[in-house]
């Protein structure tokens, strides 16, 4: 089933044509990877899915983007959209407050006030993000004191705490060591039973290991989109092959 349907989408930053005629359907409960050289528009497309591009002045989008058949840029309340479509940023960005308050921020935003209920959410999401054991004794400590890898998993937990349907991850592991990266990859594969995950990565191995589908972008165009095994074993386009074999990019 398609979670996202994107049809003849174009995006301009002012005069700059950043995404050109994108047509892409992404499946529910799968991991889709966006790959491509720097500046090709991966982050831009990702941010269009939860309308974080609204913050960019002069950003104009045409075409249609749908979430479960509903127009993202139509009547949908942007805050509801962002609750349904969570995001993990490239650089871990925990709030300067306690671990507990970081996780509880989202649920509180959406009206959960009951202390017991919040306690449960905090514990459950930290367990889901495979970081409960490391943090259970530090819930009241500032999140800024955690290691980079812990911070990023905390941010994943924070995103999960609002019970999203989709998780967007923009190079979420690029600043992390192999062990933290491995933990987050494992986590993604576990989470896809319940969530739809879309990740941007510069790491071909990671895309191959983790994702079910891969889309290759170049200069604002989507060159090829297929299941990951096909893309990496027998790409149809020559540019894709050149990119994944490391001949450019």
């Amino acid at each position: 089933m398609d979670k996202f349907q994107i049809q003849s989408m174009n995006l301009h930053y002012g005069k700059f044509h950043a995404l050109k005629n994108i047509n892409l359907n992404m499946q529910k409960n799968k991991i889709t990877a966006f790959i491509g050289p720097s500046g090709c528009g991966k982050s831009t497309l990702l941010k269009s899915l939860n309308r974080m591009n609204d913050l960019v002045e002069g950003c104009k989008i045409t075409g249609s983007l749908k979430l479960d058949g509903e127009d993202i840029y139509g009547n949908m309340d942007v805050n509801v959209l962002r609750k349904r479509v969570g995001m993990v940023f490239q650089k871990a960005n925990p709030f300067p407050m306690s671990v507990y308050d970081n996780i509880a921020f989202g649920p509180r935003t959406h009206g959960v006030k009951n202390k017991k209920q919040l306690d449960e959410i905090v514990e459950q999401t930290l367990k889901d993000a495979a970081i409960w054991d490391e943090l259970k004794d530090r819930l009241k400590k500032s999140a800024l004191g955690l290691s980079g890898g812990q911070q990023q998993r905390l941010c994943i937990a924070r995103a999960l705490a609002v019970k999203p349907e989709v998780l967007l991850m923009d190079e979420a592991t690029s600043a992390l060591d192999p062990i933290s990266t491995g933990k987050i990859e494992e986590l993604c594969m576990k989470l896809k039973n319940e969530y739809t995950i879309i990740m941007v990565t510069h790491n071909m191995q990671q895309a191959l290991r983790v994702s079910d589908y891969t889309a290759f972008f170049l200069l604002g165009e989507m060159i090829e989109y297929n299941d990951t095994d096909t893309i990496f074993s027998s790409p149809k386009e020559q540019k894709t092959e050149e990119y994944i074999t490391g001949r450019f990019g």
Binding site: N50, M52, L55, N79, V80, L81, R82, K83, G86, M87, F89, K91, N93, P94, F95, P96, F105, G106, T109, H110, C155, R158, A159, V162
Partner: peptide, 17 residues
């Protein structure tokens, strides 16, 4: 840092919140 603001928005918080 702007990243705090973006992080909150991405959780579905309003601009004011």
């Amino acid at each position: 840092p702007e990243s705090y603001y973006e992080g909150a928005l991405a959780l579905g918080a309003t601009k004011e919140r």
